[in-house]
Amino acid sequence: VPDPITIPQTKGKPRLLLMGQRRSGKSSISGVVFQKVSPSETLFLESTARIHKNNLSSFMEFQVWDFPGQIDVFDNPNFAFDMDAIFGEIGALIWVIDAQDDYLEAVARLNNTILHLQRSYPHINIEVFIHKVDGLSDDYKLDIQRDVTIRIQDELSDQGVENAPVSFHLTSIYNHSIFEAFSKVIQKLIPRLGQLEAMLTNLCRTCRFEKAYLFDVTTKIYIATDSTPEDMASYEICSDYLDVIIDFTQVYGNWQRSPDWRKHLEQAPWMQPLEDQVACERAESGMVLSDAQRPIMLREVDRFLALVAIMKEGSYEKMPQINMNVDVVVKGLTEFFEITKPKETRTTT
């Protein structure tokens, strides 16, 4: 059997497969979440003709594979796929359904896929993105989700499959929902997630934070949060705050100052190397709302991760103490990720 696609062996990198009908939004999703494409620019995307692979080096290394909509890996008369190469190391299969279109065929193909996977790779998480839900009313969104869920579960139980690991997410590239959904997908792939969550819960208790998130800086996916209930509004403001800090840093932090500049800054009255003049070598930031309630703080953990938290009223004045507690947690987090951090990527870029 000829192998139509050469797939490099990639040990230990969880793989996210994006599949679904043509024009369902797969390339847009991968562009917006992993390549900083702005949602409106996706209008120019061309139909994907071949599998598109993205490597993502962050706190973990991921691969994102974007499949052309017309390829059905299980039912292809032209060539056979090496199933092990595709699904052997998979982290999750993300199946994208266009909610603004007729989705019966998409659901039928998804059912077929799940049945195939259940036979050989029963542990793969199947994440169904009911996509393009911007512009749909909340009621309508839930109706669609219910309908899709029932159609899949009925088919699966007819075929005698129970408890397949299938989850559903309502998504759109025009708001935070796509990042939220990816956060959930990725959190399932993090070993010892519970430990991370415990660290954040502890931090919230000692510092009296309302909510804390640990973000992957490049994608703005959150990989852990404390144990208080999920809250979209908190996630949105923390994620946007991270965005603001990244933007500011890009404009003012990324160009080389002249040697004279440093000389000037280290002479009288300061008389100290710059390194000793600063309190923290990584980014730290804080923001106060006009009503003085719920300030927000941010701390860079390493080059991939940042901690963002919503504080309680009055805590901004106690920043020195808070910073001490944050230092401790940052140290813990750094140790936690020492194990998973990619090592060979330093040579590139």
């Binding site: 600063v278 930031s285 923001m287 106060v288």
Partner: peptide
């Protein structure tokens, strides 16, 4: 908002 501060190391 009334204040926003960033300190970006050195």
């Amino acid at each position: 908002f009334s204040d926003l501060e960033i300190k970006m190391g050195t």
